[in-house]
Each structure stands twice: as structure tokens, then as C-alpha cells.
């Protein structure tokens, strides 16, 4: 088992290498000149040329990539062009809201979506099934920001129950913490939940049609028992897979959700950095998000061995 995990971890190295090279070259060829942004509105061309030289933006590609990669390997993602602060510090001070938001969403969504998918499969063809599937398809059909505004309108303005924006750390109290996360999580989780519910339903249907389930049912086992003990257990692998892959949706959604709800997390850092061409920050966050995504899916892969004894490592 340990050897397997290590092997898988090593296998992520080339993937992350490709990401690193890709991210670096992406921004190397970017048209925006950070020197112009730093210089400000009243700058002259000489000011810009001077800043350009100072930042080392004139060095050749490989040299800059080398410098950058060496730094990254030592935990140094460079200095933000705009705030003059280390990228690791900027990311560090914004990690908590994003981790809190994504984890809450992930857990709550899975807790809701998997049972709904199971229910839909169990009651296949009935109005319950159709309703669940309709909600799931609708979840795919609405841009997250529209949903977010509608939620705010409903639950913060018309019914002033929940805060409009912002983030409160769990250290400042649990109730304020969670009340700030409910609406963002709902906006963020809908599409993710839709995906999970659909896949859960499909894989449950697949398993339910297998002979051994029919046998179990014929043996007289109660429906619920069949469903949970046999069917869900066997459908677990595709469900786990989609939970892992769907994290990409969460990460993409975080960018929009944090902007609407003014949550000071990595998603907003990303948008700000891209709009300002803050190269080191963009590189840092893409690398971070990608690493997180790869690791989540690695964890999912490893969990297969626990979920399904037939999977060998």
C-alpha cells in the first residue's frame, strides 16, 4: 500500500512539471507588460523601461524559467509585482477562506447529492427520479454568478437572514463563520452536486441491474439493505471518481463565487492577479490549484483500494 502511494506520488512529478512549464511559458508570451502597470497612469516611457530592466523582464526564456523553477522548488514563488510582497505570503493569508469554502461545499454537497442520486436510482422512472434529474440538469444550465445574485436577493435582501458578503474566520465564532459560508456554498455547490447526483444515479442503475443484486432482492433482503449494503458499495468507485474530478468545478466556481461574495480567498486573488498581469501571483495560484487538484484525485485513486477490494494496487 505504502509503495503504491509512493509510486503514485512520484508519477505526479512529471505532470506537475508539465504544468510548471506550461504556466511559465503561458505568461512568458503574455502581451501585458507589468512594468507599465507598475509605473502608473502618469508614467513616461523611460519610467517603464527602467522598471522593465529592474524586474529582469529582459532575460532569455530558459534563464527566467530556471530561476523561477529553482525558487519554486525552494518554496519561493517570487515577489508580487503589485504589492511587493512574497507570493507565498499573499497565498498564505488567503488560503483559509478558500479552504473553508471549498471543504464546506464539498462535504455538504456530497452529503446531499449522493443520497439524492441513490434515491433517484431506487425510484427510477417515478416523479422523484424526474424531479431530482430536473434539478440536476438545471444545475448545469445556470451560470454560478446568476444563482449567487438570486440567492443574495432572496436570503439577504428580501429576507435578511444571512450576510451579503465577506468572510469571518472560525476563530471569531462558529455561527458568524458558517452564516457567511451558506450562500457562497450553495452557489458554488449546485453544479458540483448536479454532477455527483447524476453519476450516482447512473452507476447505481448499472449496479442494480446486475444479477447478484437481483439475487439478493430475490433472497428477500429488504430494499434498503440491498441498496446500501450491496449496490452503493459496488457503485462507490465511479462516485468517488466524479467527486474527485468534480473538484475542478469547485475550483473554477470559487473564482466566481469569491468575487460575488467578496470573500478574500485565492479565487479573488486569481482574478485580481490576471486583470493586473501580476505574473508571479498568476503562476503561483495556477500551480497551487493544479497541485491541489492532482492531490485530491490521487487521494481518490488511493481510496479505490479501500472502497473496492477488487481494485489492486
Amino acid at each position: 500500500m505504502l509503495a503504491y502511494i509512493i509510486r503514485r506520488l512520484i508519477a505526479t512529478v512529471p505532470v506537475m512539471g508539465v504544468v510548471a512549464l506550461f504556466v511559465f511559458s503561458l505568461l512568458y508570451i503574455a502581451p501585458g507588460d507589468p512594468a507599465a502597470m507598475i509605473a502608473g497612469d502618469l508614467a513616461t516611457s523611460e519610467d517603464i523601461a527602467r522598471i522593465h530592466a529592474k524586474l529582469g523582464l529582459d532575460e532569455p526564456f530558459l534563464l527566467r524559467f530556471g530561476h523561477w523553477l529553482w525558487g519554486v522548488l525552494h518554496g519561493d514563488l517570487g515577489i508580487s509585482i503589485f504589492t511587493n510582497l512574497p507570493v507565498t505570503q499573499l497565498i498564505g493569508q488567503r488560503l483559509e477562506p478558500t479552504v473553508a469554502l471549498t471543504l464546506t461545499t464539498l462535504v455538504v454537497t456530497v452529503v446531499f447529492a449522493v443520497p439524492l442520486g441513490v434515491l433517484a436510482a431506487w425510484k427510477v422512472g417515478t416523479w422523484i427520479d424526474r424531479l431530482v434529474m430536473l434539478v440536476a440538469v438545471l444545475g448545469f444550465s445556470l451560470p454560478a454568478f446568476v444563482l449567487a445574485y438570486l440567492l443574495v436577493l432572496a436570503f439577504s435582501i428580501e429576507l435578511p437572514l444571512l450576510p451579503v458578503q465577506g468572510y469571518v474566520s472560525i476563530r471569531d465564532g462558529f455561527v458568524p463563520f458558517i452564516s457567511h459560508l451558506i450562500l457562497p456554498s450553495a452557489a458554488l455547490g449546485l453544479i458540483y452536486g448536479a454532477l455527483i447526483a447524476r453519476v450516482t444515479r447512473a452507476s447505481m442503475l448499472e449496479v442494480l441491474s446486475q444479477d447478484y443484486i437481483r439475487t439478493a432482492a430475490a433472497k428477500g433482503l429488504a430494499d434498503g439493505q440491498v441498496l446500501l449494503r450491496h449496490a452503493l458499495k459496488n457503485a462507490a468507485v465511479p462516485i468517488a471518481t466524479v467527486i474527485g474530478i468534480g473538484v475542478a468545478l469547485l475550483i473554477s466556481g470559487v473564482i466566481v463565487t469569491e468575487t460575488v461574495f467578496a470573500i478574500p480567498g485565492i479565487g479573488r486573488l486569481t482574478v485580481d492577479a490576471i486583470l493586473r498581469r501580476d505574473y508571479p501571483v498568476i503562476q503561483g495560484v495556477i500551480l497551487l490549484f493544479s497541485a491541489a487538484y492532482v492531490l485530491v484525485n490521487l487521494a481518490v485513486d488511493i481510496s479505490y483500494t479501500l472502497l473496492d477490494p477488487r481494485v489492486r494496487y
Binding site: V18, V19, L26, I251, G253, V271, I274, R277, I282, Y293
Partner: peptide
């Protein structure tokens, strides 16, 4: 497929935004 794996590990919307930041 190594390149594809790399691309795939960048969440799609993030990748699209980054690419759009490159061009007009």
C-alpha cells in the same frame, strides 16, 4: 498524454481565463 495530463490538472475555467488573459 503527459502534456494532456498536465493540461488536465489545471481546472478548465482557470485555464481558459489564463489563456484569455494572453490574447485580445
Amino acid at each position: 498524454m503527459r502534456v494532456m495530463d498536465g493540461l488536465m490538472s489545471v481546472p478548465p475555467v482557470l485555464l481558459a481565463i489564463a489563456l484569455m488573459a494572453l490574447t485580445r
